[in-house]
């Protein structure tokens, strides 16, 4: 038997890690934080919500669809908005505004969908958690197993992909030195597109786990954004494995710290939980600006 705190911690860490690794990956390609990254979570979450609410079937059947749809949206965002703007020489502030705009656009579209589905199929589409659709294995909720296994698997797979496969090495080359990679005949743009797809797909997966654990609204992903940022910054913002570790740590802090404070008797403090990512961000930026990765290993820090 596991106590709720452990389960909550592990699920939350998984969501944070899965989403922050995607944010870091896209940051490496375009050099701006993607403010629309939370929207990938919202999209992934709503795929699961609609599937479960309309058809009444298990959200696990559409994990692939959550990942695929978010991945495609990410590719569209990169191809249609960021890459053209960057090639016109827009400043990084402009690119950031563009990502914020995409987030706002996706918010509008998701709200329209939620309204439409709610009216046509007469189901709740806001503030809805799919915990009742989750099942248990040996009295462990499946979402926790999914969360742990996706973190472990994506760490292993990303490691193999980036270090052992030709494609992954080409992607690393495009990230670290685009012009040199181009000279060597690597299609940098295609590599970046792939990176955006992976980022969106991981975001969609995180969103699907989010829907299984926490109530979803059309702003859930945007509300989760500070946590994603904190995880990535803790990981150094340019290290993929750093951000995985950062996500796990921030996820832990996010559920363990409020619990500890509550144990001390300040139960009302729990409401202020969203402050924690900001605190982590400020502490990291003040004391360890290049994140936990600067402590031990160097991979990925060369690129500035």
């Amino acid at each position: 038997m596991l106590d709720p705190l452990t389960i909550n911690t592990l699920v939350y860490s998984g969501i944070a890690a899965m989403s922050s690794v995607g944010l870091t990956l896209t940051y490496l390609t375009t050099r701006v934080p993607n403010f629309a990254h939370g929207s990938f979570l919202t999209i992934g979450a709503y795929v699961a919500v609609y599937w479960a609410q309309i058809l009444g079937r298990s959200p696990y059947e559409v994990i692939w669809a959550s990942a695929l749809l978010s991945g495609c949206v990410a590719v569209i965002q990169y191809k249609l908005v960021l890459a053209p703007l960057a090639s016109r020489g827009s400043s990084s502030t402009y690119l950031m505004i563009a990502t914020l705009t995409v987030a706002f656009f996706i918010f509008g579209v998701m709200s329209i969908f939620a309204d439409y589905v709610g009216r046509v199929y007469r189901v709740r589409t806001n503030y809805i958690a799919l915990r009742s659709f989750d099942f248990q294995i040996l009295s462990i909720p499946m979402v926790m197993i999914l969360s742990i296994s996706s973190v472990v698997l994506s760490t292993i797979l990303l490691y193999i992909f980036l270090n052992k496969t030709k494609l992954g090495i080409a992607m690393r080359a495009s990230i670290e030195n685009p012009s040199l990679a181009q000279v060597l005949g690597i299609n940098v743009d295609r590599m970046y597109t792939l990176a955006w797809f992976i980022s969106g797909a991981l975001g969609g997966l995180a969103g699907m786990m989010y829907a299984l654990w926490l109530p979803v609204t059309t702003t859930s992903g945007d509300e989760f954004l500070p946590t994603i940022f904190a995880s990535s910054i803790l990981g150094g913002l340019s290290s993929i494995f750093g951000s995985l570790a950062g996500g796990v740590l921030v996820g832990m802090a996010n559920s363990v710290i409020p619990h500890m404070i509550a144990v001390l008797g300040f139960t009302e403090v729990i409401q202020y939980r969203p402050v924690i990512p900001l605190l982590i961000m400020s502490i990291v930026l003040l004391t360890l600006p290049s994140g936990i990765t600067s402590l031990r290993w160097r991979w990925g820090r060369e690129a500035k």
Binding site: V32, T93, M96, P226, A230, I233, L278, L285
Partner: peptide, 15 residues
């Protein structure tokens, strides 16, 4: 730096 600042201010805004 610009990107870090944007992320920090965005997170601060909602406090």
């Amino acid at each position: 730096k610009e990107e870090y600042l944007a992320m920090t201010l965005l997170a601060m805004g909602e406090i």
